[in-house]
Design a protein around this nucleic acid. Structure first.
Lengths: 344, 344
DNA sequence: TTGAAAGCGTTACCAG
DNA sequence: CTGGTAACGCTTTCAA
C-alpha cells in the first residue's frame, strides 16, 4: 500500500505557529542566516522536523531576487558524451549554488529555441547549451536573449562563449602516436561536416606535414557512424598501389566499422593495420575492442563550461571566450609498431 | 557582441498598464481563458508583443493550485535506452499539460533520493523514475513521499506502479526465432542479476521446454557488457562435447562481445554460429553489425509510463499497476538457418 | 465583459 | 535578536 503523502505540505507559517515565532524568524533560522538565538533556533528546527517541513522552492525563487537557476539544454541526450557532460554539469551547477533545469528533448532548432524560451520563463540566470541549437543563426539568436555558453563546438564566427575539445591537437596526437610506432602510410577517415571533423582533419594534415609525410596524406570522406567506417575500409583497402599500415579515424564509431570490415576482409588489427579512433566512447575501452583513441574529457568540458558560465554571469560584458579543452591519447591494443613484413 | 537582455523582464502589470486594463484581465486574455472582448484582447496581445512579455512560470506555478510539474529522474542517462525514454517522456508530459523537471545525475540511491526531495520541493505532482533509485527499499521509501511510476524494472514485491518490457516474452521470441531457423543447440548467455535478466532467462528456459529441447538448455553466466560476452564465448566454445549452433544473449553488448570473440576464434557469424541479442541498441541496427535482437521500445515504455502517471494522479487510490510492454523481434543478419555442415 | 482584492509561500526590509 | 509588513508576479474568486 502506498502511503498517501500528507494532504497539504507544511509551510513556513505552520512551523512558525508551531514554534510560536514569526514567519520571518522561522525563515532565518531554517536557512541558517542572520542571528537567531540558539534557543529559538532549536525550537524552530524541531517544529520543522516534526511537521516534515520542506521549503517550497517555487515560492523561494519567486521571492528572492536571484532565482538561482541555471538552464541546461542538451541536443542529443542519447549521445553518451553529451549525456555525460550534462550530468556532470548539473552536479557542478549545484556546487556553485545553482539548481539545474535540464531540457533533454531539444533535438531540432525549433525545439531548442522553445526549450530555451521556457527556461527563460523560469528565470534561469543563464543557459548552458550542449550540442544544440544546431545552426549558427539559431545559436546567435538564442544567445541574444540570455547569457549562454555553448559546449561541443568551436563557435568561430558567432560571438558566443564556447567550450570544445582541441581537435587540432587531437588529430596531431593521433598521427604523432602512429608515426612514433614507425608508421608512414597513415590514412585519415574524416567525419565530413560533423562537428570537429574539420579540425581533426587539419590536425592530421598538419602533423603529417611536420613529419615530412605530405606525400602520404590520404583522406577518405567518412562520417561519425559504423557504416561509414566500413565503407571507408572497403575504399581504402581496395587501392592497389597504396595500402596504409595505419588509419586515424575521426570518430570511434568510424574506427569500429573500419576494424570490423578489415577483419572481415581477413586483415588482422593491429597486425596488418593499426587503427586510432576519436572520442573514447565506453565501447573503446572494453577489453574486447581495446581501441586506441583520442579521449575527450566530459569532466573537463563540463567544468570548463560551468566555469565559463560563472565568468559570464559575473562579468556580462567580458570578452567572448573560446575555450579549448586538451584531448588525451589513450594507447590500447588496436595500434602497434609497424612491421615491415605486414606491409603489403 | 552579445546583446544584453532587457534589464527587467516585462510583467503582467506592465502590459496591463500599457493596454490600459487591469492585471486580471490581462492574465485572462493572455491565457485565452474566460470571456474577453475581441477588442480588448487584441489590445492586450499587442501590448504583450510590444513589451516582449513572457509569463514568469515561477510566479504562475506558485499562484495556481496545481503547479503542473512532473518530475523525471534518470539513473543512468549515459545509457541510451534510458536517455531515449526520458526524452520521449518529457515530450509526452508536455503534451499532457505538464512541464517536466528532469534530474539526470541520480546515479546513486542517495543522489536519487536527494533529487526527488528537490523535485518535491518544487511541488511536482508526481515523479517518473527511470532506472533509479536502484534498491528496493529506496524505491519504496521514495514512493511513500509522492506518486511515482517506475520505468525499467518489474517491481514485483514493491507496491509501486511499474512499467517494463515483457522480458519473458522477449526470451521466448528469441528462442522461437532460432528454433524456427532449425537450431536445436541453443545456449543462453544471461545477464546475472541485472534488471530483466532473470525474466529473459525464464523466457529462454520456458521456450526451450515448450520445444522439447530441455536437454539442450545451457545457461552461461554473463553480464550486460561486451567483455562478459567475450568471456562467455570462450567458455561456451571451449566445451568439446556440446557446441551450440546458436546463442541467445541477454543483452546486445553481450552479443557483440560474443560475436567479436567468435570471429577472433575463427568462427563465422552466422555461418557457424547464429546470435540473437536483446535491446536493439543503435549499434545493433548498423549494416556492419546487423545484429538480430529483441527490440525494447523506448516510445512504448515512455508512453506507458506517462499514461500510468496520469492514471495514478487521477485516481490516487487505484490498485498498483504492473505494466508489461511487448518486445519485438528484429531479424537481421546475425542469425541464419541452421546448416548441418556447420555443426561441429 | 471588466476590475478590485485576496492570496500562493517565501524573502527582504525596517523598526523595536 | 525578533516580529511586522511589504514585495515577488501571477491566478482566482467575487462583485460590479
Amino acid at each position: 500500500m502506498t502511503k498517501k503523502p500528507p494532504q497539504r505540505p507544511a509551510t513556513l507559517a505552520d512551523i512558525a505557529r508551531h514554534a510560536g515565532v514569526s514567519r520571518s524568524l522561522a525563515s532565518l533560522a531554517i536557512r541558517g542566516e542572520g542571528a537567531v538565538s540558539p534557543e529559538t533556533r532549536k525550537r524552530i528546527m524541531e517544529a520543522a522536523a516534526a511537521l516534515d517541513y520542506r521549503p517550497n522552492l517555487v515560492a523561494r525563487s519567486l521571492a528572492s531576487a536571484e532565482a538561482g537557476y541555471l538552464g541546461i539544454v542538451v541536443g542529443e541526450i542519447e549521445n553518451p558524451l553529451q549525456a555525460e557532460i550534462a550530468k556532470l554539469a548539473s552536479g557542478l551547477a549545484r556546487a556553485e549554488g545553482y539548481s539545474a533545469l535540464v531540457s533533454i528533448d531539444a533535438d531540432t532548432d525549433e525545439k531548442a529555441e522553445e526549450a530555451i524560451r521556457t527556461l527563460i520563463a523560469h528565470r534561469v540566470s543563464g543557459v548552458l547549451a550542449i550540442g544544440a541549437p544546431f545552426e549558427k543563426p539559431a545559436i546567435a539568436r538564442v544567445a541574444s536573449w540570455i547569457p549562454m555558453v555553448y559546449v561541443g563546438r568551436l563557435l568561430k564566427v558567432v560571438a558566443v562563449d564556447s567550450v570544445t575539445t582541441d581537435d587540432v591537437t587531437g588529430g596531431i596526437l593521433a598521427v604523432d602516436h602512429l608515426v612514433a610506432l614507425g608508421h608512414r602510410r597513415i590514412a585519415h577517415v574524416d567525419g565530413g561536416a560533423s562537428p570537429g571533423a574539420e579540425r581533426r582533419r587539419d590536425g592530421y594534415r598538419r602533423a603529417m606535414e611536420r613529419h615530412g609525410l605530405e606525400r602520404q596524406i590520404r583522406i577518405i570522406e567518412g562520417a561519425y557512424t559504423i557504416d561509414a567506417g566500413a565503407r571507408a575500409a572497403r575504399a581504402l583497402l581496395a587501392e592497389p598501389d597504396w595500402r596504409p599500415s595505419a588509419v586515424f579515424a575521426s570518430n570511434d564509431m568510424t574506427a569500429i566499422g573500419l576494424i570490423n570490415e578489415a577483419m572481415r576482409i581477413g586483415l588482422s588489427v593491429p597486425g596488418d593495420l593499426s587503427v586510432v579512433g576519436y572520442d573514447d566512447v565506453t565501447l573503446a575501452g572494453t577489453e574486447t575492442l581495446s581501441l586506441s583513441t583520442i579521449h575527450q574529457s566530459a569532466g573537463d568540458l563540463a567544468s570548463a563550461g560551468i566555469a565559463a558560465m560563472m565568468a559570464r554571469l559575473a562579468e556580462p560584458d567580458a570578452a567572448v571566450s573560446k575555450i579549448l579543452v586538451p584531448p588525451r591519447l589513450m594507447t590500447r591494443r588496436s595500434s602497434a609498431p609497424f612491421s615491415a613484413t605486414a606491409a603489403a
